[in-house]
Each structure stands twice: as C-alpha cells, then as structure tokens.
C-alpha cells in the first residue's frame, strides 16, 4: 500500500477508461481502427493517422524493462529511497512509466529487457496504479 502523500492522478474525460481499467484489474490501451496503431497515453484519436475511429482493448499486461533510474534523492513524497522509476515497453508496443515491485531496487536485480507483468496497486477507492513485477516463469 502506497503512502497517502504519493502524487495522485486525476483522470480526465479522455483518460477515464484507463483508470476504470486499472480498478477493474485490466491494463487498457487504445488501437486505431483505421491504421492499427496501438498507442499510449490515452486520447480519443490516433496520434499516427489522426483518425477518430479508435477502440479501447485489454492489453496483455506483459512487457519488458526498457530503462530506469534508481532514485536516491530527492525522493518524491510517499516514496522511500532508493526506488526505481522504470519505463516498461509493453508487448503491444507502447511504453509507460511505472515502478517495479517484488524485486530488489538494485542494478543487479533490475536487468534491462527483463520480462515484466502488470500488477495493480490500489492507491485509494478511486485510483489503482499499474505497477510491474518480474514475470513468473
């Protein structure tokens, strides 16, 4: 459970489906119906071809560690240093920032390209954050 002081996202009309998804235990991405582009962060049109015909779908939740820092100072409110701030490359293509849980926050344990899977961490009654842990198996 994250500490209450952690920065809390505030959904907008264009991102509500993403945050509804994390609460439901789904990582939701968007795909362009016209050109097939899968993209993130959410918006109601395709940033590649500008089509407004897009669909929301449940992503696999699988990805790999693209890059990271292990932050020592200054630490963000609600975080105990050192903690890794990671960018995860999802199997569907888009990348997103997250934290790596169930893993030592060390360079030795955090290997680039290691396989990851999504895990959901409830921040409060309305917000659940998408986190990632080393993939099992």
């Amino acid at each position: 459970m994250a500490e209450p002081a952690r920065a809390r996202p505030k959904p907008t009309p264009e991102t509500q489906h993403f945050w509804d998804g994390t609460q439901a235990g789904e990582l939701r991405l968007q795909r362009c119906d016209a050109c097939g582009n899968v993209y993130f962060p959410p918006r109601p049109f395709c940033p590649s071809c500008a089509s407004r015909k897009i669909s929301v779908f449940k992503a696999s939740g699988k990805g790999k560690l693209y890059s990271y820092v292990i932050n020592h100072r200054p630490a963000a409110p609600g975080f105990t240093p050192p903690y890794a701030i990671a960018v995860v490359e999802l199997d569907e293509g888009p990348r997103m920032m997250s934290n790596i849980i169930d893993c030592p926050q060390t360079p030795e344990a955090l290997e680039l390209d290691m396989k990851l899977e999504v895990a959901f961490e409830k921040l409060d009654d309305k917000i659940t954050l998408p986190m990632f842990r080393p993939a099992k198996g």
Binding site: K10, T15, Y68, N71, P74, A75, I85, M97, N99
Partner: peptide, 23 residues
C-alpha cells in the same frame, strides 16, 4: 494532477529533473 504527466509519470515517483532526465 490531471495533466498527462500528472497522471502517467508523477505517481511513479519522478521528482525533479535528476529523477527524470537520466531515465
């Protein structure tokens, strides 16, 4: 908190340029 950075980066502990620029 309702900007894209506020929703999709800030909750994961970025806190000033040293925590972001070297990513």
């Amino acid at each position: 908190a309702d900007s894209l950075q506020g929703q999709f980066e800030a909750p994961f502990g970025v806190y000033g340029p040293p925590s972001m620029f070297p990513i």
